[in-house]
Nucleic acid binder design. Structure first.
Lengths: 209, 209
DNA sequence: GATGAAAATTACACTGAGACAAGTTTTTAT
DNA sequence: ATAAAAACTTGTCTCAGTGTAATTTTCATC
C-alpha cells in the first residue's frame, strides 16, 4: 500500500522546510534566521513550520532521532558469547572505517557544515545532550535485562559507555572542523578508541593520574 | 577592606531576587512564573533581573556555579600516593556521610524542593547538563597535567568519572524525591557508590552484560 | 558637605519563539 | 458529488531577552 497523496505531501513539505532551514542556518547562523524567514522561503505559514517541528532546534536535530537507539541495538543484537563492551567496541571501530558521521569522521562538506552549526550554537549543543541522555536510558534498560544485575549498576555502566563514545566522537569532530581530512584523523581515532575501550573494560586503575 | 555600600547592596539585591524567584518557582512551577512577576515581587525593574541573571534559568542555577570545579580540586589536592580515582571515591563517600546535596542526599525540605524543581523542568535539566560538561572540562585538564598522558585519554577518563558521579547522584535523588528519608537511602547509596567506583577502577570487563 | 564622575537602575521599544483559537483549503472516503 | 477529516492559514497573545537613552544612586575628591 503506497502512501496516499496526503502522506506524500506531508513528507515533502517537511523535507522542504528542513532543507531550506539547514541551508539558511549554515549560510547565516542559527540565531540570525527566524522561523518566519524559513516559512517564507518555503512558501508556508509560520505555524506550519511549528506543526512539523516542535521547536526551532528540532528542525536541525529531529533527523538524528533515529540513531538514539543505536547503542542499545548493537548490544541486543550481538553474537552470543560476545560481551556488551566488545560489541560496542567492534561497532565503534566499524563506524570509524566507514567514516561514519555518527562517530564524527565524515568530512562530507554538508555533514561537516551541519556539525559546525551544532557545535557553534549553544541552544543546539544543549539539545544534543538530551540525545545522550535518552541513548543512555535505552542502553541502561538493555544492559539491565541482559546482565540480570541491578539497575543502578547497569545505569552506571551505560553512563560510562555513552560518555566514552561522546568524548571520542567529540575529539574526532574537533580535528575535522580544524581542517584535517577524515583519512588523516582516522589512524589516531582508531588508537584513541582502542585506548578508551581498554579503559572501559579494564578500568582507570592502571591510569595513574 | 570591607565591601563598599555599592557592593553590599548589589549582593543583597541579587539575593532578594534569587530568594523571591525560588520561592515563587517552588510554589507555582518554573514555567508559570514570569520574570516580570519576580521583578514586581522584589520591587525592581524587569531589566534589573536580567542585569543580575543572564537568563531565567540562571536564577536557579547560578548559585551552583561554585561547585563546578569540585572534582578537579579534589584531584589536585589529594594526598601524595593516592590515585585520582581513589581520591574521588573518598570524596564522594565523604559527601554521602555528610548527606550533602551535591550527591543528592540532602532531605532538607528546601533543598529537596529545589531539586524537584530542576528535575521537573526540562529547561533547567538541560541547563544542568552544561555544568557536567564544564566540570568534565576542568577535570580533563587536571588529569592531563597530573598524568602526563595525552589529552584524549584524560578526556575519556574525565567523561567516565563525571558520568559515573552523575548516575549515582541521580539515583539517590530519585529515591529521595520518591519520599525516602536520606538516612534510609544512605546504605544503598554507599553500596552503589562502591560498586560504581569499582567499575571505574577495574573496568566493565567483569560486568558480563 | 557640595560636586562631578562612575555605576546602577529604570522606562521604553523592539525582535523572536511558541501557544491558542477560529476559519479556510485540500484530500480522502463513500 | 459530497461530507468528514486532516492540513494549512491568519491573527493574536504572552513572555524571554536585547538595546538604548534617560534617570537615579553611590563614591571619591575637594
Amino acid at each position: 500500500m503506497g502512501l496516499g497523496l496526503r502522506e506524500t505531501k506531508k513528507l515533502r513539505t517537511q523535507r522542504e522546510i528542513w532543507e531550506a532551514a539547514i541551508r539558511m542556518f549554515v549560510e547565516r547562523d542559527f540565531d540570525n534566521v527566524s522561523v518566519a524567514e524559513i516559512a517564507a522561503a518555503v512558501q508556508v505559514s509560520r505555524k506550519t513550520v511549528f506543526n512539523y517541528f516542535a521547536t526551532k532546534e528540532d528542525i536541525v536535530l529531529t533527523p538524528m532521532e533515529e540513531h538514539v537507539a543505536d547503542s542499545a541495538v548493537v548490544v541486543r543484537e550481538r553474537a552470543p558469547g560476545e560481551t556488551a563492551v566488545a560489541a560496542l567496541r567492534r561497532d565503534y571501530l566499524d563506524r570509524l572505517t566507514r567514516r561514519d558521521a555518527s562517530v564524527g569522521l565524515s568530512d562530507a562538506p554538508h555533514t561537516l557544515a551541519v556539525m559546525r552549526l551544532i557545535l557553534s550554537t549553544p541552544a543546539l549543543q544543549v539539545r544534543a545532550f538530551s540525545f545522550h541522555e535518552r541513548a543512555q536510558e535505552l542502553l541502561t534498560r538493555e544492559l539491565a535485562v541482559q546482565s540480570g544485575r541491578d539497575d543502578v549498576t547497569a545505569r552506571v555502566a551505560a553512563a560510562q559507555i555513552v560518555s566514552t563514545r561522546a568524548a571520542l566522537t567529540s575529539e574526532n569532530l574537533r580535528r575535522l572542523l580544524a581542517g584535517e581530512p577524515a583519512d588523516a584523523v582516522y589512524p589516531d581515532a582508531v588508537a584513541d578508541a582502542e585506548r578508551a575501550f581498554d579503559l572501559l573494560e579494564h578500568g582507570l586503575g592502571d591510569y595513574c593520574g
